[in-house]
């Protein structure tokens, strides 16, 4: 290192650090941060796929896109759908993951196989998983409907993925939305399962044993010994799952294409972009999505992370 002669070791270290981190920073800057900045600009421009070459990067700023996007009733219903989908998907996947982790906590024969089976939905490509669900739920020859009409006494096959409303035990329910939520839970409870199981297995056994000696029943031990130790990982999972589900595109797009009352905001953005070629409006809508997410995260971190401490 002759070029670095005359510098202190500390200076050399700082320089080497910057050199080594620079490829990471450059790619993040070029492929993530600059495009994001551009997306913000596009949201304020009248940019369409046909005139984009003449739009230019600067100038021609307008608030028209936001006015247009916010005035459309479809946007607000998409936002509500996104929220219902996200809250239900997050909550149920964590609860299911918790149940799975508790059931698999102790050793038993075949546990490795059961664990492998549980991880399958999470590992499998989303396209393959969504396609199998589509076929299983198909009203004509799907196994769910064949078994349902034959053994469960359903009068008619249920079009799980294309029916917006249906009646269940006399209550009107959003059929397709519940189905995509079920898919979300099925696919992502293994994620919660892995985190919670790791935490369970890292817990010291003596606390549980002490409670056992004191005569605590299984439910008391769970409520007062195990659960308090799990809150932190559950809080972390809630944030992660909430963010990922809120931003989710693939699952809903592949299952329903956003039809039958399942249009979440990201699917709506995609449709605006590709079907209508309206870049400005889709960018404005995506930004509103990101802004809502930031508001939720801020509120969450304020209240829950603060209360925990």
């Amino acid at each position: 290192m002759t070029a670095t002669r005359g510098r202190t070791l500390r200076e050399q270290e700082a320089r080497a650090g910057l050199v080594l981190i620079s490829p990471t920073l450059v790619i993040t800057l070029v492929v993530v941060l600059l495009p994001m900045a551009w997306a913000v600009m596009l949201a304020f421009q009248d940019a369409r796929l046909i005139n984009i070459r003449y739009t230019g990067i600067f100038g021609g700023y307008t608030l028209e896109n936001f006015g247009y996007v916010l005035a459309e009733p479809g946007f607000w219903s998409a936002l509500v759908t996104t929220l219902v989908y996200t809250v239900a998907g997050t909550f149920l996947s964590i609860v299911t993951g918790l149940a799975a982790a508790l059931a698999l906590r102790g050793r038993f024969r075949g546990r490795t196989l059961v664990r492998a089976s549980i991880l399958l939905p999470y590992v499998a490509p989303v396209v393959a998983a969504a396609f199998v669900w589509e076929i299983m739920l198909n009203p004509q020859y799907g196994v769910a409907n064949v078994l349902g009409t034959r053994f469960l006494g359903w009068d008619d096959p249920i079009a799980f993925l294309s029916q917006a409303q249906g009646e269940f035990l006399g209550v009107r329910v959003p059929v397709a939305l519940l189905t995509v939520i079920a898919f979300e839970v099925w696919r992502y409870f293994p994620f919660a399962f892995l985190f919670i199981l790791a935490r369970l297995q890292a817990m010291p056994a003596y606390l549980d044993e002490a409670a056992l000696v004191d005569g605590a029943t299984p439910s008391q031990r769970f409520r007062h010994v195990t659960l308090p130790q799990l809150w932190r990982v559950i809080a972390l999972l809630s944030v992660l799952r909430f963010v990922f589900t809120f931003n989710k595109f693939d699952d809903v797009y592949l299952l329903t294409g956003g039809g039958a009352g399942t249009e979440v905001v990201s699917v709506r953005v995609f449709n605006l972009l590709t079907a209508r070629g309206d870049i400005g409006a889709s960018a404005a809508q995506a930004l509103v999505l990101a802004a809502v997410l930031v508001v939720f995260l801020t509120v969450y971190l304020r209240f829950f992370a603060g209360a925990e401490r």
């Binding site: 993530v32 551009w38 972009l273 960018a283 999505l289 990101a290």
Partner: peptide
């Protein structure tokens, strides 16, 4: 944590 769909547009 940023939505991929925002990045997808530009």
């Amino acid at each position: 944590l940023f939505p991929a769909i925002v990045l997808a547009i530009p």
